[in-house]
């Protein structure tokens, strides 16, 4: 078994199988949601048997809120969320791309009403999964995952 680069955490959340390069975005997302004074470790570009390379994020004494789980699902579809208690994984959940994505992404269409001063967040429906295709609820334009940088 390869050496652990970061030791196991006693309690908290571990997000595994994050596509390489996305870990920092997720960390920033969590840091933006209120106080963030917990110990966090971010491993980047780790070798993986399931994917080419992955990032892993370990946050001690912190469980993700529902909104955060949805946001992470969008930024890292296919990632695994592990809830840790007393050094053991007590819950493991695969984070799949939700059917609707709200308030996490901006619409790339500059003429979309969500990009004006209106009090409105963009909302997307996932219309296809392989490859991922999304449609903005408001301007009805269709985008690929690369258009939305996910």
């Amino acid at each position: 078994m390869p050496d652990l680069k970061v030791s196991k955490i006693p309690n908290g959340s571990v997000i595994d199988h994050i596509p390489a390069g996305r870990g920092l975005k997720i960390l920033n997302l969590l840091r933006m949601n209120g106080d963030f004074d917990k110990t966090a470790s971010l491993l980047m570009n780790v070798e993986s048997s399931k994917m080419d390379k992955k990032d892993i994020l370990k946050v001690e004494d912190r469980e993700l809120e529902e909104g955060e789980v949805k946001s992470v699902s969008v930024l890292a579809p296919g990632a695994t969320l592990n809830i840790i208690d007393d050094y053991k994984v007590v819950e493991k959940k695969r984070l799949d791309l939700p059917e609707k994505i709200e308030s996490v992404l901006e619409c790339p269409n500059p003429h979309c009403v969500t990009n004006t001063d209106e009090p409105l967040h963009a909302s997307f429906e996932v219309t296809e999964r392989k490859p991922v295709a999304l449609q903005c609820k408001y301007c009805e334009r269709k985008f690929t995952s690369s258009d939305l940088d996910i």
């Binding site: 269409n109 003429h111 979309c112 009403v113 969500t114 004006t116 209106e118 409105l120 903005c136 609820k137 408001y138 301007c139 009805e140 334009r141």
Partner: peptide, 10 residues
């Protein structure tokens, strides 16, 4: 009627 797409739905 609006130049901004999605205004009516909003």
């Amino acid at each position: 009627r609006s130049p901004y797409e999605g205004t009516a739905r909003m």
